[in-house]
Amino acid sequence: MEKGNGCCFSAMTSNPTILVLVTIITVILTRVLYIMYQSGKPLHNTAPQSVSTLIVLGSGGHTAEMLNLLSMLQKDRFTPRFYIAAATDNMSLQKAHLMEKSLVDMTGGEALESAQFMQIYRSREVGQSYITSVVTTIIAIAHALWIMIKIRPQVILCNGPGTCLPLCVIAFLFKVVGIRWSSTFYVESIARVRRLSLSGLLLYKLHMADQFFVQWPQLQKKYPRAHYVGCLM
């Protein structure tokens, strides 16, 4: 064993390209693992004044649940707010806009200025062929990257539409590279009782959500790092 290791090591030192490559990969891996380790930890620096917040909406119940959650969060803490929905979904942003407008009516003028609404391309529409979806996926990722570079949110709130996945991955990469430290909160949809959605499963397994919430006790048993918070609806 030892001999084999030594042999391998000498082979590596004899080839500087491999050595550099191995070093770079080790550094990146260490950084990724460090970020994963740090991500789930509460921020214990002094309480921030306010945090820029990206809110991912989605049809099929996601938006209703998200707006329910927002109704419980202090708007002066979570400001400015960036609402994002799929380009094919025209109802969600409308609903968010209505909610923000009702805030303005209540507080008198300030809230809506701190809210922005934007649409994002979806990587794949239902029934789209796989060949064209390679292209559309690349476009969707580029668009998500552009949006994230513009916003650089401190907080991401999402609850499961597929559009949240690239945004969360990019937010994680920003942490790795050191562009922006952000906290991602993922609330699995109430419709998921026994199994996580694909977005939820990936974010859980990859440790990309700082806090992961589920609305049914069965899921918490299966995914012990998740927090069970009861039904939001």
């Binding site: 921030p48 419980m72 969060l73 806090q211 918070v229």
Partner: peptide
């Protein structure tokens, strides 16, 4: 149900 438990955990996590 309501989102009060989630909101509380999020606020705590962020240090509010």
């Amino acid at each position: 149900g309501d989102a009060a438990p989630v909101a509380k955990l999020i606020n705590r996590f962020l240090g509010f």
